[in-house]
Design a binder for these strands. Structure first.
Length: 479
RNA sequence: GGCGUCGUGGCGGAGUGGUUACGCAGCGGACUGCAAAUCCGUGUACGCCAGUUCGAUUCUGGCCGACGCCUCCA
C-alpha cells in the first residue's frame, strides 16, 4: 500500500485511487518565459519519480502537466524582446522539452496549454458568476469572491482574517475583498486577448489549472502536485474555484516538493542565485542531478552546491563500478537475496517515496554484488546486477553502460573553476592513447620493471586516468 | 506581525521510545610488486532547558537558531 503525505491533512495517507488501479495526477508545470533552472528540475524529477513508481507498482496513470503560455510576465518579456508571444513561448517550450529529455524526465500523458482551454475557462468563470462566487468589478475584471467560499485557507493553513491583516498588497478599490483574485483580466490596448462575455481579455493565472484539470481528469481526481510555493495562493485558489464551480470534491492528495536552496536560501530569480539547466547540465551528467535530488526526501529543502553534486557523483560511481564487468541477467530466478531487496525497496518507496532510503537499498545491493563478484559466483552476480539496474530504473539512474559511464565523464569534473584548478583539458586525451600507455605499462609489469610501470601510471594519473589491475587485466576510468 | 517547516557524527542525509541507515571523506586490516577498486572493521551524532517514562535523538512544553509562505515563483 502506497502512502503519501497529503499537504491538506498534514498526514501520510494511503493512496486509494478513485478508479481502482488508475491514478489521475495533475502537476503544475512551467510558465514559459525563460529557461528552466535547477529548482524547476527538482520538481520535474520529483514528480517523474512519482510517475515511475506508480507505474512500477502496476498502476495505470494519467499524468497531466500543464504549460502556462499566457500571463503578465510572458507579455512583458515578449515586449522586452520585441518578439511575438507565440514565438517566445514556443521557444521556451522547446527548451523545456530538451531539458526534460536531458534529465530523463518522462513526458506526461497530457501537456495542455492554457491558450488551448480558453473556452473551458470562460465557461467555468460563467459558472462561478452564476453561482454567486464571482463578480465583475468596476474596472471590468472578473474576480473570485473569497468570502463566499467556506474553507478558504485550509490548504495553506491560513485564515482570512490573518491574511487580511498581513496583506502587503495595496488595496485595490475595485475589489470587494482585498483577497479576491482575478479570474478574467481585461486586455489593455495591444495586449493579447480573447473575446468573452465580459469583453476582450485573458484568463487569470489560477483558473487555467482548474479548467484544465476538470476538463482532462474530471472534477474529482487523485493527486495534485507542484512546488511548495504554489501552495498559496495558487493551489488555495484552485480549490476555491473548482469546488465552487463543480460543487464536488476536488483533489484527494496534495503533494508539494521542497525548494532548492543556495547557501540556505531559496533559489529564485529575485535573489539572482539561480542556475539554469542549460548552463549546468553540460558540466555534469543528468543522472548526477537526479542522484543529487533523490538523496534528500522530496519535501525537505536541498542545498545546491558543487560539493553536494560531487558526493552524488561519487555515490553513483560506486554503483557503476559494481556493475562493471558483470553480465546482468534479466533475473526472474527469484533468489532469496532478490526477493528481500525488492521487498525493502517497495517498503521504503511505498512510504511517501523515501528515495534516500531507496538509494541506500541500491547501495547495499551493490555491496552484495561486489561480494558475489569477488567470490566468483557469476550467476548470483548477474542476477543481482540485473536487479540493481531494474530498481535503479525506477529512480531513473544507472541507465548507462558501466564502461561508457566510467570512461565518458564530461569535462572530467563539475565546474569550470574546478577544471581550471586542475588544469585539465580532457579533450586532449583520447582512449587509444590511454590504451597504448596501459599496454606499455603491462609489458613493463610482465618484465617486472616496476619503476617503469609506476612511471606510466603516474603519467596517466596526471591525465586524471585511474588504473585498476584485476584478474581480467587492467581497467581504467576517469578520476 | 500572522502561519508553517526544520535543527542528526568532518560533510550530505534517512530513521527510531531501549538493538547497523546509507553515501562521501578519515583511520586500521585483508587483497596488491606498489597502487586502485573491493571486502571487513572503526568513529561512543542527534540545537539548548525542562517534563512524561524504567529508559528520549525519537513524545510534551519552553527557549535559541535557520529557512519558507503571507506579492509572481517549481
Amino acid at each position: 500500500m502506497i502512502e503519501i503525505y497529503n499537504s491538506l491533512s498534514g498526514r501520510k495517507e494511503p493512496l486509494r485511487p478513485l478508479e481502482v488501479g488508475h491514478v489521475r495526477m495533475y502537476v503544475c508545470g512551467m510558465t514559459v518565459y525563460d529557461y528552466c533552472h535547477v529548482g524547476h528540475a527538482r520538481s520535474l524529477i520529483v514528480f517523474d519519480i512519482v510517475r515511475r513508481y506508480l507505474r512500477h507498482s502496476g498502476l495505470r496513470l494519467t499524468h497531466v502537466r500543464n504549460i502556462t503560455d499566457i500571463d503578465d510576465k510572458i507579455i512583458a518579456r515578449a515586449a522586452e524582446n520585441g518578439e511575438s508571444i507565440t514565438a517566445l513561448t514556443e521557444r521556451f517550450i522547446d527548451a523545456m522539452h530538451e531539458d526534460c529529455e536531458a534529465l530523463g524526465v518522462e513526458p506526461p500523458e497530457l501537456e495542455p496549454r492554457a491558450t488551448e482551454y480558453i473556452a473551458a475557462i470562460i465557461t467555468m468563470v460563467q459558472t462561478l458568476i452564476s453561482k454567486g462566487h464571482a463578480y465583475v468589478a468596476s474596472d471590468g475584471d472578473v474576480l473570485y469572491s473569497v468570502s463566499g467560499f467556506e474553507g478558504y485557507g485550509r490548504l495553506s493553513g491560513k485564515r482570512l482574517a490573518d491574511l487580511r491583516a498581513g496583506a502587503r498588497v495595496e488595496i485595490d478599490q475595485s475589489k470587494r475583498d482585498p483577497l479576491d483574485f482575478v479570474l478574467w483580466k481585461m486586455a489593455k490596448p495591444g495586449e493579447p486577448c480573447w473575446p468573452s462575455p465580459w469583453g476582450e481579455g485573458r484568463p487569470g493565472w489560477h483558473i487555467e489549472c482548474s479548467a484544465m484539470s476538470v476538463a482532462l481528469l474530471g472534477t474529482h481526481f487523485d493527486i495534485h502536485g507542484g512546488g511548495m510555493d504554489l501552495k498559496f495562493p495558487h493551489h488555495e485558489n484552485e480549490i476555491a474555484q473548482s469546488c465552487a464551480a463543480c460543487e464536488s470534491a476536488f483533489v484527494n492528495t496534495w503533494m508539494h516538493n521542497g525548494f532548492v536552496n543556495v547557501n540556505a536560501e531559496k533559489m529564485s530569480k529575485s535573489l539572482g542565485n539561480f542556475f539554469t539547466l542549460r548552463e549546468v547540465l553540460p558540466r555534469l551528467r543528468p543522472e548526477v542531478m537526479r542522484a543529487f535530488v533523490l538523496a534528500s526526501h522530496y519535501r525537505g529543502p536541498i542545498n545546491y552546491s558543487e560539493e553536494n553534486l560531487r558526493q552524488a557523483d561519487a555515490s553513483l560511481e560506486r554503483l557503476y563500478v559494481a556493475l562493471r564487468g558483470v553480465i546482468a541477467t534479466d533475473s526472474q530466478s527469484l533468489v532469496p537475496e532478490i526477493i528481500a531487496v525488492r521487498k525493502r525497496f517497495k517498503a521504503v518507496m511505498d512510504d511517501d517515496f523515501n528515495t534516500p532510503e531507496a538509494l541506500a537499498v541500491l547501495q547495499s545491493l551493490a555491496r552484495d554484488l561486489n561480494v558475489a563478484k569477488a567470490e566468483g559466483d557469476t550467476a548470483l552476480a548477474g542476477a543481482l546486477a540485473g536487479e540493481l539496474v531494474r530498481l535503479s530504473g525506477v529512480l531513473g539512474v544507472l541507465q548507462w553502460e558501466p564502461e561508457a559511464w566510467l570512461k565518458n565523464r564530461p569535462l572530467l569534473g563539475l565546474s569550470v573553476a574546478e577544471l581550471e584548478a586542475k588544469d585539465v583539458a580532457p579533450a586532449r586525451v583520447d582512449a587509444a592513447a590511454i590504451d597504448a600507455l596501459i599496454a606499455a605499462r603491462t609489458a613493463a609489469r610482465v618484465a617486472r620493471n616496476f619503476a617503469e610501470s609506476d612511471r606510466i601510471r603516474d603519467e596517466l594519473a596526471a591525465l586524471k586516468v585511474v588504473l585498476e589491475d584485476g584478474p581480467a587485466g587492467t581497467q581504467w576510468r576517469w578520476a
